[in-house]
Computed example of a mutant assay.
Amino acid sequence: MKNARLGVVFASLLALGGCGAVSALNKAAIPLDAYELRAPSDMPQAGRSLNRALSIEPPTTSGALDTDRILVKPNPVQSLYLPDGRWASELPAMWQTMALRAFEDTGALSYVGRRPLGAVGDFALISEITDFQAELGDDDTATIRLRLTARLVRESDARVVARRVFSAAVPVEGTETLTLVNGFNVASDEVLAEMVAWGLQGMGLRLPAS
């Protein structure tokens, strides 16, 4: 049986039927605890630095994800937001910050930023998040699902030099907000570690195995 507390509150929320529902939920005058995901704390060190500059754009997302609310799916056709928690910033901005930190922590690049260094940088990372939700199961369990498509673009000629889809599915025991957030952290760490290794390889450097 799903967590009773969540079940009672979810019953009072409308499924997301469009921008109006999203707007109404976001404007609700209810104080929510804020949660922040962080980049992995154990990124492998490159050992040497590439003379490369990377700009990381905030990912694009669907309307339901383009918010600071934490998305939950009680079933495949219904989407709700957690009633008592939110992200510390909107998902695209939070993910951009995590990606910046993850690339920086490897020490592999001469520059990592939100915009190119100078008029034109060397590479840009463009991505789209299509899944970032907790999918509720039976018996007070859930699966955190993350899916992201990333493209590494050479700035000089706008050529896509690499493209890859990253995904993670992390089972969690319990549907309390903190339990779900910890699951999001595990899924994000997994995808970020894979994406950083892939991105650096696309720029000419292979990270050592962690």
Rank of each mutant, 00 (worst) to 15 (best):
L152T: 12
V160S: 04
A124L: 00
E155L: 01
T149E: 15
L125F: 00
T106R: 07
A102Y: 06
D131W: 03
I126F: 01
P116N: 00
A142S: 15
G113W: 02
R147G: 14
S127M: 01
R101K: 14
T141A: 07
V161A: 05
I144R: 09
V161H: 05
D157C: 07
I144A: 04
I129M: 05
T143A: 13
D122H: 13
S127T: 08
R114I: 04
A162Q: 12
A150Y: 03
V153L: 10
D138I: 08
A102S: 13
A119F: 00
E104F: 03
D139F: 13
T130L: 04
T106L: 10
Q133M: 05
F103Q: 12
T149H: 11
P116K: 02
D140A: 08
D105F: 00
I126C: 00
T149M: 08
V112E: 11
E128A: 11
R115P: 00
G137K: 14
R101G: 02
D140F: 12
F123E: 02
L152I: 14
S110R: 14
D140Y: 09
A108C: 10
G121V: 08
V120F: 09
T143K: 15
R163S: 14
R101I: 08
L109Q: 08
D157N: 15
A124I: 01
A124T: 05
A108Y: 06
R145S: 10
A108V: 07
F123I: 00
T130F: 02
T130R: 09
F103K: 11
A134H: 09
L136S: 12
L109D: 06
E128F: 01
A158G: 01
L146R: 03
E104W: 05
G118C: 03
R101M: 06
T143N: 15
T149I: 08
T106G: 09
D139T: 05
V160C: 01
S127F: 00
F103T: 13
G113F: 04
A158S: 13
S156H: 06
D105W: 01
L136W: 10
L136M: 14
A108K: 10
D139S: 12
S127A: 07
S110M: 10
S110T: 11
L109Y: 02
A150F: 06
R115Y: 09
G107Q: 12
L148Q: 15
V112F: 09
T149Q: 11
D139V: 06
V153W: 03
V161T: 12
D105N: 15
L148N: 14
A162T: 05
S156K: 11
R159L: 11
L148R: 12
L109V: 11
D138P: 02
V161W: 00
F103N: 12
G118T: 06
S127K: 01
T141W: 12
R147H: 03
T141S: 14
R151S: 13
A124M: 04
A124V: 02
R154A: 12
R115Q: 13
T143E: 11
